[in-house]
Design a protein around this nucleic acid. Structure first.
Length: 468
RNA sequence: UCCUCAAUAGCUCAGUUGGUUAGAGCACCUGACUGUUAAUCAGGGGGUCGUAGGUUCAAGUCCUACUUGGGGAGCCA
């Protein structure tokens, strides 16, 4: 008997299959009925919707049916027919049922009603079987696919940067050390310090916090590259927006300036949102109904509006004017201050009411590699600020001048040792270039309307938590 | 890491100014119903009130510490 995925049966033209016998396989979401007939809602993960299986109790063994409960796995042969009931176009009249696996209802934690996200996190090994997480994971796949498709169509090459790095100058955060040494018996040098020469790589190594520096090496050879891989930050951040292990997308483009950079940022993120609306409407409709009633409207709103381009200095002026008009902020606003969440939210959610790309930040609050403006005060950094989730993209034009870059490194007291390979990009055939970084899970928060980043990745890693 | 709120049945929650034997819905079990849509209806079983200490004649309720989780902040993507 030929097996069909439920997505095919519900979404394709199946008129040729009507009144013929076919097979489906999947997990039972609910069983209901009376003493004559039972209805099984079977889900195989291919789509959020279930196939209704109609079971005439007279034709089946009572013991078999008793074992078919929420969570059980079944294979059903049956005749595909137009549904007599409301709520679905077709249904399967069961002819033969194989019970692959039971799910003892006394211990199976998933029910057909209301679970909290907190509870589902505790049963991370089973939560992919819920409607909500099925929808999120299908969207997650689609976003990954959309990202690769966007870059491929725009002439970018997927460039694989290392996960293990010996660079201690990445500066983007605390790093996880990588070692094969016995932590209970560390080799020491004469002065008592740890002898990393005896470690696997012969030096101290860590998990990467960013692929950007290596990405620049790719861009200065291939023109346009992007990375898309796991990233690790050992920071003790306990918030709904941070993970210790997350996925990051980092495109890097030779010959891009500030205008072409912000244009790409906007086009890229709109492409991803449009992809979700074009390819994932069933899952979005479910999330819109169950998680966030404003989701679809907000997604459509973002792709229909132009993002604001806002130099930092103008942003400060707007915030100072707001304060003059009585707006209260917890943190002070002055030129040179790093903007707090409340300031960003005011600009995006209250003042402009649409996404904002802020540019030209004071150099002292941004990274050493950002291109310095002629004013001597600002650098060409960009943050794309979104409603509700804040910074979704951080990028910049890179400083391509050997003299300016190294002068800035000296100013910041950075150790050039171990960084000479990066500086070589400016020493040999340097070029104007730019790039940005997008936290994949931050994008997922926006796409799904979920409130906690731990719920848009299958197995979240956060301080004190590495289950499953 | 800081601030704040919370933890009661398998799940979601109620539990009054501290006072008798801690409740409801869902789930589960039994039964009813000729096609249900998170089916419905009737009945039943199910609790170390997060952990440890303290106050009190009496603690789910008040106090302290710890653990875990939520929200906010910082760091950031």
């Amino acid at each position: 008997m030929k097996r069909y995925e439920i997505k095919h049966l519900l979404k394709e033209d199946v008129s040729a299959l009507l009144d013929t016998s076919i097979n489906i396989k999947g997990w039972v979401r609910t069983k209901r009925g009376n003493k004559n007939v039972a209805f099984l809602a079977v889900n195989d993960g291919s789509i959020i919707h279930n196939m209704q299986v109609v079971v005439d109790l007279a034709n089946f063994d009572e013991e078999l049916l008793k074992g078919i409960t929420t969570g059980a796995c079944v294979s059903v042969d049956g005749k595909l027919v137009k549904s007599q009931g409301q709520g679905q176009a077709v249904e399967l009249q069961a002819e033969n049922i194989i019970l692959y696996g039971t799910a003892d209802p006394d211990t199976y934690p998933l029910q057909k009603k209301g679970h909290s996200m907190e509870f589902l996190r505790e049963i991370g090994h089973l939560r992919p079987r819920t409607n909500t997480f099925g929808a999120i994971m299908r969207l997650r796949h689609n976003m990954a696919y959309a990202i690769h498709t966007f870059f491929h169509e725009h002439g970018f090459y997927y460039f694989h940067t290392p996960l293990i790095t010996a660079s201690d100058c990445e500066g983007a955060g605390e790093m996880f050390q990588v070692t094969t040494m016995d932590l209970n018996n560390l080799p020491r040098k004469e002065d008592g310090s740890i002898d990393y020469e005896q470690d696997f790589f012969g030096k101290q190594t860590s998990l990467t916090v960013s692929g950007q520096l290596e990405g620049e090496l790719g861009a200065t050879a291939l023109g346009k590259i992007y990375t898309f891989g796991p990233t690790f930050r050992a920071e003790n951040s306990n918030t709904p927006r941070h993970l210790a292990e997350f996925w990051m997308i980092e495109p890097e483009m030779a010959f891009y300036d500030l205008d072409s950079l912000t244009e790409l940022e906007e086009e890229f993120i709109k492409y991803c949102i449009r992809w979700a609306l074009d390819h994932c409407m069933d899952d979005l409709e479910f999330l819109n109904k169950m998680v966030d009633n404003g989701l679809i409207e907000r997604l459509k709103g973002v792709i229909a509006t132009d993002f604001v381009r806002l130099p930092y200095t103008e942003g400060i002026n707007i915030l100072e004017a707001a304060i003059k008009n009585g707006k209260k902020f917890e943190f002070p606003v002055f030129w040179g201050a790093d903007l707090a969440s409340e300031h960003e939210r005011y600009l995006v959610e209250e003042h402009f009411k649409r996404p904002v790309i802020m540019t030209d930040y004071p150099k002292d609050i941004k990274a050493f590699y950002m291109k310095q403006n002629d004013d001597g005060k600002t650098v060409q950094g960009t943050d794309v600020l979104f409603p509700q989730i804040g910074e979704i993209i951080g990028g910049s034009v890179r400083e391509e001048s050997y003299d300016k870059l190294t002068a800035r490194m000296n100013e910041l007291g950075m150790d050039r040792k171990g960084m000479e390979w990066y500086i070589d990009t400016r020493r040999y055939g340097t070029c104007p270039h730019a790039g940005f970084g997008l936290g994949f899970e931050r994008l997922m928060l926006f796409i799904t309307g979920m409130g906690n980043i731990r719920d848009v990745i299958p197995f979240p890693r956060t301080p004190k938590t590495a289950e499953f």
